[in-house]
Simulated scan of single mutants.
Amino acid sequence: MQSYSDKFAFQVTVSPSEVSYSYSIKAALHLGSETPLVDAKCGPSGLCNQSAAATSPSFCSCVHQGFSAAVSPPDWNMDDTSRGCRRNVPLDCGGSRSSSTDWFAALPGVKLPDTLNSSLDMGITLDQCRARCLANCSCVAYAAADIQGSGDGSGCLMWPENLIDLQYLGGWQTLYIRLAKSESGKRKERSLLEWRKRLQIILGIAEGVKHLHEGEGSAGNVIHRDLKPANVLLDGG
C-alpha cells in the first residue's frame, strides 16, 4: 500500500482542554490534480485512499465493509462521492457496556476525522475509552488522544456522529469504528468461505499429483521439479 506520510509535516497539539491535529504539504511537493489527500471529498463515513484507485474508479471508499455507498454504484464511480457511506446494519445500543452487542474494527494508518464535535478525556486509557464509547449510544468511533508515548497511546477521543475528512496516509494513527454484531459474523463467514476455496484448490492439486503417479497410463516415475503456488493454473470456476 502506497504511503504519503513522508510528504507531509504533521503536528499534534495536546492540552487539558483540547487536542488538535494539523498537517501541511512539504515544500516543492506536487501531488497532481487527481489526488484528494489535501481536500478529501468522500463524504460521511468515507475514506480517501490513494490505493483504492487500483480496484475502483474513485479514490474514495467506505471506511469498512459494514458500510455501503449512499449513492448507486454507477454514480459513485462517476465521482459522486460527497454523500459518503451509510451503515448496512443499525447499531445495537442498550445503553450500557454489558447490554450492547456492538464491536469495534481497527482502521490503522489514518489521519483522524474532523474533531469539531468529538469529546476529549486525557485522563483515561485506551481500554477505558473503548468501554466508555460502547456504553454511549451516540459514540460511533474512538481513538487514542496521545500517541507520542509507547504502546497504543493514551487519552480518549470519541466521535458522536458521521466521520468526516477521514484519510489514509500510512503510518499515522488507528481509529476504532463501531459496528453491529452481525457484521462480525459476516466477516467470519467470508473468512470461512475463503478457507474452503483454498482447501478445494489444495485437494485438487493433490488429486492431480496422485493421478500422475497412480492414474491409468502413468509410468509412476514423474519427477516434480517446480511445484509451487505460482505454477498452479486455476480455471476460474
Rank of each mutant, 00 (worst) to 15 (best):
Q2E: 03
Q2P: 10
S3N: 08
D6H: 09
K7C: 08
A9W: 04
F10T: 04
V12C: 11
V12N: 13
V14T: 08
S15H: 00
S17A: 02
S17D: 15
E18N: 09
E18K: 08
V19T: 06
Y21C: 15
A28I: 01
H30E: 05
L31Y: 10
L31A: 11
S33L: 04
S33K: 06
T35E: 11
P36I: 09
L37C: 11
V38H: 04
C42S: 03
G43C: 05
G43H: 06
G43F: 02
S45Y: 15
L47Y: 09
C48I: 04
Q50Y: 09
S51G: 03
S51V: 08
A53V: 02
A53H: 01
A53N: 00
S56F: 05
F59K: 14
C60S: 02
S61K: 15
V63P: 09
V63E: 14
H64T: 06
Q65V: 10
F67S: 00
A69Q: 14
A70Q: 11
A70P: 13
A70H: 06
P74D: 11
P74K: 02
W76L: 00
N77S: 05
M78L: 12
D79I: 08
D80G: 01
R83G: 10
R86W: 03
R87D: 06
N88D: 13
N88P: 01
V89I: 13
P90H: 10
D92I: 07
S98V: 07
S99N: 07
S100F: 03
A106T: 09
A106E: 07
P108F: 10
P108L: 04
G109R: 07
N117K: 11
S119D: 15
L120G: 00
D121V: 03
M122K: 04
T125A: 08
R130V: 00
A131F: 11
A131N: 14
R132S: 12
N136A: 15
C139F: 01
A141G: 11
A143K: 02
A143Q: 04
A144E: 14
A144T: 11
D146Y: 14
Q148F: 07
Q148A: 13
S150D: 05
D152R: 13
D152C: 04
D152K: 12
G153D: 12
G155W: 07
C156Q: 00
C156V: 00
L157D: 14
W159I: 10
P160F: 06
N162I: 04
N162S: 14
L163M: 09
I164D: 05
D165V: 02
L166F: 15
L166I: 13
L166R: 13
L169D: 11
Q173H: 06
T174G: 14
L175T: 10
L175E: 06
Y176H: 08
I177H: 04
I177N: 05
A180D: 15
S182V: 15
S182M: 15
S184I: 05
G185C: 07
R187K: 12
K188T: 04
K188P: 00
R190Y: 14
S191P: 00
S191Q: 12
L193R: 12
R196P: 03
R196W: 06
R198P: 03
Q200A: 13
Q200L: 13
G204C: 00
G204F: 01
G208M: 01
V209P: 05
H213P: 00
G217V: 02
G217W: 09
A219W: 00
G220H: 03
H224Q: 08
K228V: 08
K228W: 00
P229R: 02
P229H: 01
N231W: 01
V232T: 07
L233F: 13
L234Q: 02
D235C: 12
G236F: 15
